[in-house]
Design a binder for these strands. Structure first.
Lengths: 123, 123
DNA sequence: AAATTGTATATATCGCATATATACAGCAAA
DNA sequence: TTTGCTGTATATATGCGATATATACAATTT
């Protein structure tokens, strides 16, 4: 488990952790059922508090990526891909809504917004 | 000048003011060259501090909506529509970038994002 | 000069985000 | 059943940014 915390990062510790873990799960380096390091071990390894690692795991659990069993440990969830997908979409949707609201307020047309999106998300 | 401040609003005072003023300018109720109430008068009328009204005007100035002349007052800018437009687009763009970044991180495809946008911005 | 305008500086306050220590509880394997 | 692992809950510290202020200053108009 190679999690790297950078004090130079603008992101808080708990977010750096969950971002990296989420990445590992999306790319498949972590598979359903895999055990994650215990919040204590990870905390010790990174020299941070248990509360912080717990916070990371909690967030990922809320997103549906992890399942945690009291007394046993935390594991990559047997997803349930449809549900996960919906959760992801909800997160994005909230961001998009902000942009759309702003666009409406400033009188930007739908087409313009769509063009911007296309330009930004080159794939 | 009918600006209404609601303490029940989740938005800070300075934002309530600038949002409402921006609205008036976009709809054309305030036209280029029109004078705005002095920060002092507006402050007195709304029973808030000059600093707060100033903050609102500053924000709108940065967006290109207003022009302010020391000792004279603040006026609706002779816009310069192309510039204004660009500024608006920049604001929206930043919001969109957040959404796109999140989408990339969560493995959402471009097309899905586009569909969401279409659904959200029904026009 | 007097009255208006906006500006600058220094400050108070509040709340949220971040991170923590420590005591508690559940499970499992020796 | 004891030992050692797991996660959980509570109460707290701290820092920082956002919000809002008073007040003294400067520029312009009449």
């Amino acid at each position: 488990m190679k999690i790297i915390i950078k004090n130079s990062s603008p992101d808080p510790i708990y977010k750096q952790i969950s971002d990296q873990l989420r990445g590992l799960m999306i790319t498949g380096e972590l598979k359903a059922g895999d055990a994650l390091p215990s919040i204590r071990n990870l905390a010790k390894e990174l020299r941070i508090s248990v509360i912080t690692t717990k916070r990371s795991y909690e967030d990922l659990e809320r997103e549906g990526f992890l399942e945690t069993v009291g007394g046993k440990g935390t594991f990559v969830a047997h997803q349930n891909k449809e549900f996960i997908k919906e959760q992801k979409l909800k997160i994005i949707e909230n961001k998009l809504i902000e942009a759309v609201d702003e666009a409406r307020m400033l009188g930007i047309k739908k087409k313009e917004l769509r063009d911007m999106l296309d330009a930004l998300y080159e794939n």
